[in-house]
């Protein structure tokens, strides 16, 4: 029987788990895929390959956007914003650039996206990201 003293209301001493692992490299790799795919798309006249390029590029661009958003929402904290006043602007632009890469086959958009991710990477590094959010050594 259910314990009548047991509360039905749950309150969250919440964390987004968190695994606490963040790295802009994740976004960078997906964005590089998009860049390369656009190159291949432009160079090819094979309709099947071109169609596949579009499908995979949209998928990768969406992943890029997701990784950018996770860094933006979860990794960066108000003290980071104080240090880098352009933090919000950069993440916002990067998210938008990822959308543009998803929608178009414009190589310039893919280049812009990579540049913005690199800027995010600088901020991640300057706020101690590599030491704080990546495993330094994994015990066997």
């Amino acid at each position: 029987m259910r314990n009548p003293l047991r509360p039905t209301r749950r309150v969250h001493a919440h964390c987004d788990i968190p695994c606490g692992v963040y790295d802009p490299e994740q976004a960078r790799i997906e964005a590089e895929s998009c860049y390369k795919i656009i190159e291949k798309y432009t160079a090819s006249s094979d309709e099947l390959l071109r169609a596949r390029c579009i499908v995979v590029k949209e998928e990768r661009a969406e992943l890029t956007k997701h990784h950018i958003d996770v860094l933006w929402h979860d990794y960066f904290k108000p003290e980071h914003l104080e240090k880098f006043p352009d933090l919000h602007e950069t993440c916002w632009k990067a998210s938008k650039a990822a959308s543009k890469v998803k929608q178009t086959t414009d190589i310039a958009a893919a280049k812009e996206l990579l540049g913005l991710i690199d800027r995010i990477d600088e901020m991640w590094k300057a706020t101690g990201g590599p030491e704080k959010t990546r495993l330094q050594a994994v015990a066997a």
Partner: peptide
């Protein structure tokens, strides 16, 4: 009455 979830 409430039940705690999470470790924060």
């Amino acid at each position: 009455v409430v039940e705690v979830q999470g470790r924060s």
